[in-house]
Design a protein around this nucleic acid. Structure first.
Lengths: 223, 223
DNA sequence: ACTTATACATAACGATGCTATGCATAACAC
DNA sequence: GTGTTATGCATAGCATCGTTATGTATAAGT
């Protein structure tokens, strides 16, 4: 019953919104800007998404999917602590590559995201579950002594999320400090705090850093 | 040369802005809303502050001052780890009492704040320094083995900042988890990770929690 | 072929930050 | 005491934002 000149207009709106978010930040994702980019009117956002908030939620859902694949990427080896640290570096890599997306996902938008349907929240929680799995492996291997995996996961997530937010706001650059060094510190102290030996933790750390460097090179080469 | 009907109008603007931020959040702090509250025009914000960003910076400066006094409040005892954990609970207490202020201070506004004059940045860093002092005490007492106090401080700050942001966005409430439990976990694992004994850390933790409960009661009684 | 429903454009409302303009007045020079 | 000057403030307007009401053209159903 409608004209529907372009059957995949919703898809194009989503792509444009994601591109504008990545390149120019959240403020560039406006109904009028999208209409200008797409050659349409501002109404298309409301016909297909119901508003700018709902559109942002859809973009966030994509972000969480991409975030999830980034976190699962790392292989499972015989060194679960190194595997865990690899996930930590993957976490940081995603945030640095998509700073605007990460900021929207975990600060401004998270509250709205939570209020939506439970399916949305599960998308966000999926990335957290992959962290829990790595923690569980460390406990199973006898490296860590973890009573409650969820609590441990929340502590780890707090550390890497806080560091990421501080790094994205430019704190480390402003005081001339190295963010990699403190990121190492978080992983190291937590691993020891969970019961691992100091030297084996250091060994796992250097292993994970080598993997992270390889992953960085692989990405920069592919793009 | 000016009429200057009210010599302390800037002060009143600041007070109103701080009140609106605390009670209704950042979106309520607009030039038109301020003009309505104060019975003036929107121009007063520009004559006295140059714009809404500069006004926000001034409000943040106040926030950091209050934040600093909250963090220094705790006494220095013969248990430096307990003193450090007391600072952590004070950190959380401030954020929960002034959620909007904390959010502006450490996410949206921090970047702008950094770009201002160095005096502003020192105000923000002062609260960080009081954290470093507590860490130094733990190392001096032989409880912790810390190579670089700054790096350790950044790791600690990342943990408590990340946890605070997650709690303020409503994450723990959404999944039905206890934020106090994971906040304990952060302090405990980091303290052990820095080299402290597991049992003495637990002892210091319970000591700090008793102090925090007392501080909470003292505040609720005074207000 | 006619009816119906709907995707989209146009236009407008209230809100935002900010700027240009004008005025009334307090502070200065004498 | 008088005149000049500079400035705090109000008014009005600009561009932008999200959203809604309205009209129209067209694809789908009968």
């Amino acid at each position: 019953m409608p004209p529907r000149s372009d059957p995949q207009l919703p898809e194009r709106i989503l792509n444009t919104a994601a591109r504008l978010l990545a390149t120019e930040g959240p403020r560039a994702v406006s109904t009028r800007r999208l209409a200008r980019e797409l050659g349409t009117s501002t109404m298309v956002v409301y016909t297909h998404f119901g508003g700018i908030n709902e559109l942002t939620r859809q973009v966030m859902r994509r972000g969480f999917a991409e975030f999830g694949t980034e976190l699962v990427r790392g292989a499972v080896t015989d060194d679960p602590v190194a595997d865990w640290m690899t996930l930590l570096w993957g976490y940081r890599r995603f945030a640095l590559r998509q700073p605007h997306m990460y900021t929207v996902m975990f600060s401004a938008g998270l509250a709205d995201f939570r209020l939506g349907d439970p399916a949305d929240f599960k998308a966000a929680r999926a990335s957290f579950v992959s962290l829990l799995r790595r923690i569980h492996a460390c406990a199973d291997a006898g490296r860590w002594d973890v009573q409650d995996v969820n609590t441990a996961g929340e502590a780890v997530w707090s550390g890497i999320h806080g560091h990421t937010m501080l790094e994205l706001t430019g704190f480390f650059g402003a005081v001339g400090r190295d963010p990699i060094r403190s990121y190492n510190e978080i992983g190291t102290r937590l691993s020891i705090g969970f019961g691992d030996d100091t030297h084996t933790t250091a060994h796992s750390l250097s292993k994970a850093k080598r993997r992270a460097a390889r992953a960085d090179r692989a990405h920069t080469a592919s793009t």
